[in-house]
Computed example of a mutant assay.
Amino acid sequence: MPIYPPKPAPFHCAICGKARPGRWQSPQHQDRQPMCWGCEQEFGTGAYGDTNPDRRTIKQISALICALEIDAHRILIGEGPLYG
Rank of each mutant, 00 (worst) to 15 (best):
M1E: 00
I3F: 08
I3Q: 07
Y4F: 08
Y4A: 14
P6R: 05
P6H: 03
P6C: 03
P8V: 02
P8Y: 05
A9N: 03
P10G: 01
P10D: 03
F11Y: 02
C13V: 06
C13I: 06
A14S: 03
A14C: 02
I15L: 04
C16E: 02
K18Y: 04
A19V: 04
A19H: 07
P21D: 07
G22K: 04
G22T: 07
R23E: 10
R23L: 12
W24A: 09
W24D: 09
S26I: 12
S26F: 11
P27Y: 06
P27T: 06
P27C: 10
H29A: 12
H29K: 08
R32M: 05
P34K: 00
P34D: 01
P34F: 02
C36R: 03
C36F: 02
C36Q: 03
C36Y: 03
W37R: 11
F43G: 12
G44E: 11
G44D: 12
G44K: 08
G46T: 00
G46V: 01
G46K: 01
A47Q: 09
G49K: 10
G49E: 13
D50N: 10
D50A: 10
D50E: 14
N52A: 11
P53N: 02
P53M: 04
P53T: 04
P53K: 02
D54Y: 08
D54N: 13
D54G: 06
I58Y: 01
I58L: 08
K59G: 02
S62C: 10
S62P: 06
S62G: 14
L64N: 07
I65F: 05
C66D: 15
L68N: 14
L68I: 14
E69A: 13
I70F: 10
I70H: 10
I70W: 10
A72V: 09
H73T: 09
I75A: 12
I77A: 01
G78Q: 06
G78H: 05
G80S: 13
G80L: 14
P81H: 14
L82H: 12
Y83F: 15
